[in-house]
């Protein structure tokens, strides 16, 4: 069984794209949930939390490129760089707040008993696993299949626009929270 025969199968290409789509959906849902917690419960994100959101948007960038232009090693590489950034930041934050002491404790409330930075570690590990499985089973480079339905194509386009919109909302939120200086969790600087 040759590698070329595996990568050219339309089913294999569709499954590879499905994995990417699910990863993008999950990331969009996670960032939206974080924003909902921020705006509904008034839990302002710390600087490291904001950097983790940036890393997630970076992963989204690579996935969006693959969904729109066809999968490629270059776009996978971009996503992996930001996944590693997410892992490094979240592990460091988890270790930073591991032993609660004055000025250092997990920010925000726990979700299902797990704090946000620990969730970020799990998310980064899941993303690494997702990319590894995708590369191992479905290969690196494929063009966008011509047989892909219009409905699916529209859904992907809509999801891409949604990611850009939530990034824009986050940008405005950061401007309000941090202004043009340091970020603090005490309140919105410009409000």
């Amino acid at each position: 069984m040759s590698g070329a025969a595996i990568t050219e199968s339309p089913v294999v290409i569709a499954l590879g794209r499905l994995i990417l789509l699910l990863m993008l959906l999950a990331l969009a849902a996670i960032i939206s949930a974080a924003m909902a917690i921020q705006y509904a419960f008034g839990e302002l994100p710390c600087p490291l939390c904001l950097l983790q959101r940036v890393a997630m948007f970076g992963v989204c960038f690579g996935i969006i490129q693959q969904l729109r232009n066809g999968t490629s090693e270059r776009s996978t590489g971009l996503s992996l760089i930001f996944t590693i950034l997410l892992l490094v930041i979240s592990v460091r934050q988890t270790l930073l707040d591991l032993f609660p002491r004055p000025g250092h404790e997990y920010i925000g409330s726990a979700i299902f008993g797990i704090h946000m930075p620990v969730w970020s570690v799990l998310i980064a590990m899941a993303l690494l696993l997702g990319f590894a499985v995708k590369l191992a089973l479905f290969g690196g480079s494929h063009a966008v299949p011509e047989t892909e339905g219009k409905r699916m194509s529209r859904f992907i386009q809509g999801l891409c626009i949604y990611v850009i919109v939530i990034c824009a909302i986050n940008f405005l939120s950061v401007v309000l929270q941090c202004g043009f200086g340091e970020c603090h969790t005490s309140g919105y600087k410009l409000l």
Binding site: C60, V163, I164
Partner: peptide, 19 residues
Amino acid sequence: MPMTAIFATMLIALILDRS
């Protein structure tokens, strides 16, 4: 300023990639 710049560059990158 840095955090605002970081989000601004990410937003610009996403917009440039799209349109």
